[in-house]
């Protein structure tokens, strides 16, 4: 280890200045803008900018569309999050079984949706969900389920987006879970076998507790990603029907970049940040509590 600050500084300078100028300064600027009435007129004439204190945040409280977006996003996170994690864990358990053949082939197939372009697969799924010609209704028809207007029905639109999200993302956490499973010492299971434990008991009292740290980590990653829901509704439903799939980020995008209400939009972005921040802290607390 060498202590030569000057040379270290040279190595750091490009990355740190880029992050400072194009990340940290914008974060602070967004915070400041959220207390102003920055709008389309300000874009033309900067002198019209006024500080309005907490007005944007107060306005959010009584903005019905914002509450709708908030509610939809929470619906998405609360359902799609645990569901994704459950599917990831199940797939990891299946792939980790000693009986499983062609492990790497299955792993590859399950992982493929993760790397593909979200916009493109959302478009594919938009047609899969087609009420008359979609392949989903076709397969459901084979087992006697009547056609569902997936994206057109206010009740089914969000579940449709949730199904797409689980399909697209479960492979990522699955890889992390497989690594976690492989770190559990084999002796624990052998000892349980001697005690006469059945498969469920082994899962409940060995696998789950040993995977707890992995599960917390996976939950945080998944939650942060899911709160930023945007492309799926943008491509598949444009937030409809009846705003049932409008998400926080989509609302922020519309206010900021379609109507140029940038002050208002910045306050939405900060609310999103605060929600993610609180969510992360809660999950870290749970982890500490478990230790």
């Amino acid at each position: 280890m060498k202590s030569n600050s000057k040379i270290a500084l040279l190595f750091l300078a490009p990355a740190i200045s880029a992050i400072l100028i194009f990340f940290f300064i914008p974060v602070i600027a967004a915070f400041v803008i959220s207390f102003t009435d920055f709008d389309i007129y300000t874009l033309g004439d900067f002198s019209t900018l006024r500080f309005i204190g907490f007005d944007n945040y107060i306005k959010l409280l009584s903005d019905e569309l914002f509450w709708t977006a908030l509610k939809n996003t929470f619906y998405f996170v609360v359902v799609a999050g645990p569901l994704s994690i459950a599917v990831s864990l199940s797939a990891a358990l299946l792939l980790n079984s000693k009986l499983t053949k062609f492990k790497s082939l299955f792993r590859l197939a399950y992982f493929l949706p993760v790397v593909t372009t979200l916009v493109a697969v959302a478009i594919v799924w938009r047609f899969i969900y087609h009420p008359n010609f979609g392949i989903l209704n076709f397969f459901l028809g084979l087992i006697g389920i009547n056609p569902i207007d997936w994206l057109g029905d206010p009740f089914w639109a969000m579940p449709s987006i949730i199904i797409l999200a689980v399909w697209k993302n479960f492979g990522y956490n699955m890889i992390i879970f497989i690594a976690g499973l492989q770190n559990i010492p084999e002796e624990l299971y052998e000892a349980a076998d001697i005690e006469g434990a059945n498969a469920f008991q082994k899962f409940r009292f060995i696998t789950l507790p040993m995977l707890a740290p992995t599960t917390i980590l996976v939950s945080i990653i998944t939650m942060i990603g899911y709160f930023q829901l945007f492309a799926e509704p943008y491509v598949m439903t444009q937030g409809g029907p009846l705003n049932k799939t409008l998400s926080i980020v989509q609302y922020m995008y519309q206010e900021g970049f379609r109507w140029w209400n940038m002050g208002y939009s910045a306050s939405i972005a900060f609310v999103l940040f605060i929600i993610i921040f609180i969510g992360t802290i809660i999950q870290f607390r749970i982890q500490k509590f478990n230790k």
Partner: peptide
Amino acid sequence: KLFNLLISSMVIPAQVTMLPLFLM
């Protein structure tokens, strides 16, 4: 200190920076 500051700021979603970055 610098490293910890960087790591902890990873919790800030990119969307927060988008408006000022666009103006910039």
